[in-house]
């Protein structure tokens, strides 16, 4: 917990202050940067565990900041977008951002995102040993070798596409995957008509999961953006 370091890249004083005050109340450690160039430097020198990045920076486009950082680091990036246009968020996610917050966001929302990211980082470090063969997330278990999926002890019967979808989400657990990204990964190309199919497959997959998982939602829907598997 003590080691968990957050880098806040935000040019607006009031928002930066809001974020840092929130972080202080929860005893998070943080560093701040006021523009993109500084932010990239800070990311390189402090090696933060999470980056909170505002998309509208004075010196460069936030998406470019993501691209630059992604050249050498896989650090989780949560973008903060003032624009309510989904296309900004989608662009940021497709360029390597993990999650997003839309202004105006509540303090609770911000903390929830950080908790999710932290949990994911923890499970990633503990899983490094047996990664690959079996994926476990709460009661959900995917045996990649056997190609089987279990919730508790009950096997789920999935169609090939549903299985592929579930694996894709599991590989990127905690990350919001955009519709386009998923369609490209599953169908190989991205076509308008596939979006409807994706919706249907996702809905049936989610229903199969939800039916047996006692109120726990493994897959989150992000309207207009994509889907995410939550680390529970």
């Amino acid at each position: 917990m003590n080691k968990f370091l957050i880098l806040v890249i935000e040019d607006d004083y009031a928002i930066r202050n809001l974020i840092t005050t929130t972080l202080e109340t929860q005893n998070y450690k943080f560093r701040t940067s006021e523009n993109g160039t500084e932010g990239i430097m800070a990311a390189a020198s402090y090696q933060p565990d999470v980056i909170l990045l505002d998309l509208g920076l004075p010196d460069m486009d936030g998406v470019d900041v993501i691209r630059k950082i992604r050249l050498w680091s896989n650090v989780p990036i949560i973008v903060i977008s003032a624009r309510s246009e989904d296309s900004d968020k989608i662009e940021a996610l497709d360029n390597g951002a993990d999650d997003y917050l839309t202004k105006p966001f509540s303090v609770d929302e911000l903390l929830a995102r950080l908790r999710v990211t932290k949990r994911r980082l923890l499970s990633m470090s503990s899983e490094t040993g047996n990664q690959g063969a079996v994926f476990e997330n709460g009661a959900l278990k995917i045996d990649y070798l056997a190609g089987t999926v279990f919730v508790e002890t009950e096997e789920l019967h999935l169609t090939p596409i549903e299985y592929k979808l579930l694996c894709l989400l599991a590989h990127n657990v905690g990350k919001v995957l955009t519709h386009n990204y998923i369609i490209k990964e599953i169908w190989g190309n991205s076509m308008e008509s596939d979006l409807a199919s994706l919706r249907v497959f996702m809905a049936t997959l989610r229903k199969k999961l939800d039916k047996r998982s006692d109120g726990i939602q493994y897959i989150q829907t992000h309207i207009g953006i994509g889907y995410r598997m939550v680390r529970v």
């Binding site: 989904d86 979006l195 919706r199 829907t221």
Partner: peptide, 27 residues
């Protein structure tokens, strides 16, 4: 107000996509 400006921009502003009704309601 943002929603209104979206519609006022006409077809450019509205992004029509296939969506599941239950997902929209849940959101």
């Amino acid at each position: 107000l943002l929603s209104i400006t979206k519609i006022e921009d006409g077809n450019m502003g509205m992004r029509m996509n296939p969506e599941l009704v239950d997902e929209i309601a849940a959101e």
